[in-house]
Every structure is written in C-alpha cells, then in structure tokens.
C-alpha cells in the first residue's frame, strides 16, 4: 500500500474527539478608563450631595 492509502485508511488517526477547554492563566486587565469614569462620577455625586 502507498502512503496515501495507509494514511487515509488503516493508519489514519482514530476519530474520537474531545473538547479541550482553554484554561485561564491571566487575570483580566482592569479597565483603567472605566475606573476613572467611576471615580469622577463618585466625586461629582459627593460634590452634589454636599451642596458645594
């Protein structure tokens, strides 16, 4: 048998799929912009509430 006949026949890898879930290795980056928006919002609210 030729290479092609072998690898498409008896020597083709068995088909038995498995799902390999991707692992988490990195912590998600903090969104600095979002953090700044929140801080600004917090400051504005504080200013409003204090009535300055």
């Amino acid at each position: 048998m030729t290479f092609d006949e072998l690898t498409s026949g008896p020597c083709a890898l068995p088909r038995a799929p498995m799902i390999m879930p991707t692992q988490t290795l990195e912590r998600p980056k903090r969104n600095r912009y979002r953090l700044m928006v929140n801080i600004r919002h917090l400051l504005r609210t504080t200013v409003k509430l204090s009535g300055v």
């Binding site: 890898l13 068995p14 088909r15 038995a16 799929p17 498995m18 799902i19 390999m20």
Partner: peptide, 9 residues
C-alpha cells in the same frame, strides 16, 4: 491530536 483522537486512549 487530543481534540481529534484523544477519546480513543
């Protein structure tokens, strides 16, 4: 390989 054939082993 594992994703394609791992279940066989």
């Amino acid at each position: 390989f594992f994703e394609q054939s791992g279940g066989a082993y």
